[in-house]
């Protein structure tokens, strides 16, 4: 199961990378960034997965000398942070898209040539 999910995550990262570099519409570039973000989160959680592991929520205090059969909680904590920051980054990029559109009345990336040389 974890192999299939890993393939899904890696394919989503590749799709997002393709979209960021290839697509001309700046609004769709933000969508590609969101896909990229989702793919990275899936890959990170998959790497912490332990076969037959349970969710890292204990129902009783573990007895001395035994390790509870749980999956790795560290990547999950990092991904929790990453998702919330992903929303902030998306909102910030969309704000700039709005401002750029206000300036040039176009969503095409090729119409923004001010700093191009």
């Amino acid at each position: 199961m974890e192999y299939i999910i890993l393939i899904t995550g890696l394919a989503l990262i590749l799709m997002g990378l393709y979209g960021i570099m290839y697509i001309k519409n700046i609004f769709r570039i933000v969508i590609a960034f969101a896909l990229f973000d989702t793919g990275i989160n899936i890959v990170m959680v998959t790497i912490g997965y332990l076969r037959n592991g349970m969710a890292p929520i204990l129902d009783k205090m573990p007895t001395e000398g035994t390790t509870p059969a749980i999956v790795d909680p560290v990547p999950q904590a990092l991904v929790l942070t990453s998702i919330v920051i992903g929303l902030g980054v998306s909102a910030l990029m969309l704000t700039y898209v709005l401002k750029l559109y206000e300036d040039k009345k176009s969503l095409d990336i090729n119409s923004f040539k001010d700093l191009k040389w």
Partner: peptide, 24 residues
């Protein structure tokens, strides 16, 4: 990366520390 990926069978050192002592 995919080819060398092996689904882990035991926790890493840090995770093992958290699992053992986190609740305590």
């Amino acid at each position: 990366l995919f080819q060398s990926y092996q689904s882990a069978s035991e926790l890493t050192t840090t995770a093992k520390y958290y699992a053992d002592n986190g609740a305590k």
